[in-house]
Amino acid sequence: MKSSIIVKKALLYLILGIMALVFAYPFYNVFVLATWPGDQVLRSPPHFFFGGGLAENFRQLVSRIPFGRNFFNSLGIALTSTISVIFFCTMAGFAFAKYRFRFRDQLYFFVIASMAIPGFLNIIPFYKMMVRFGWINTWLPLVVPGMAGAFGIFLMTQFLENSLPNDVIEAARIDGLGDLGILMRIVFPLARPAMAVLGIVTFVGSWNNFTGPLILMPKIEATTLPVALSLLNSRVDNNQGALMLGNALTLLPLILIFVFFSKQIISGLTAGAVKG
């Protein structure tokens, strides 16, 4: 009886351990390969340990793609998206959570329902529109349309409904604060935990966006890291070392964010699903 429990437990850990290895190894592999010179990346048997080609790979990388520009674009788009999403979604979430107004429930339903629309349905006319606006190869089409995203409004409404006491708002009103004052001085400071979740999730989504910049920012100087990497990947004179290092440098910020904020990321990304 006792020994069968131990066997069961060992088996459980073995399966979970193997799965963890399967999930983690590709990440380790990226960083290992980023340190091998271009002509030695692909080897049999494969590399399991770090090499000495990091500096050379970096020189190759920056000579092939405008890496600094691409990094700057990725970071700039992600940060401006994050800040504007936090601002506009907290504002809308506050209204849906704490005001009673005509058509509130219908409008909220509309926000939630809009999340179910597949992204590809509007992509062709949207592209034409961006051409007409002159927004191609700028940050604008990747920041402006999503500034007040439905998911963020849902997240903030949920949070403020449950965690912002009505008494606090009433007290602030009696103290003479207007609606904007309450938003700025009460709601924003008190909504920080949810704003952090929304901010991190938005940043990660923007950082990883590929289809958007692929269509809207075709120029290599104007585009983001994922698209620049895919262009490097499909080049004939591709240098494997440069590609691997570029990949590692694209992943590194995400992994760092995840190490520090995994709780917020997991709760944020599964928020709608777990509630539903």
């Binding site: 590709p26 990226v30 994922p226 694209t250 992943l251």
Partner: peptide, 30 residues
């Protein structure tokens, strides 16, 4: 376990595909 299983979900598709391209390389893949 939860976090290590979740990590792939937040990585960019380009990165993932480049990694798996190497892992499944005909001559040199693991």
């Amino acid at each position: 376990f939860k976090t290590s299983f979740f990590l792939p979900y937040i990585t960019s598709t380009v990165s993932v595909v480049i990694i798996f391209g190497v892992l499944f390389d005909t001559n040199y893949g693991i």
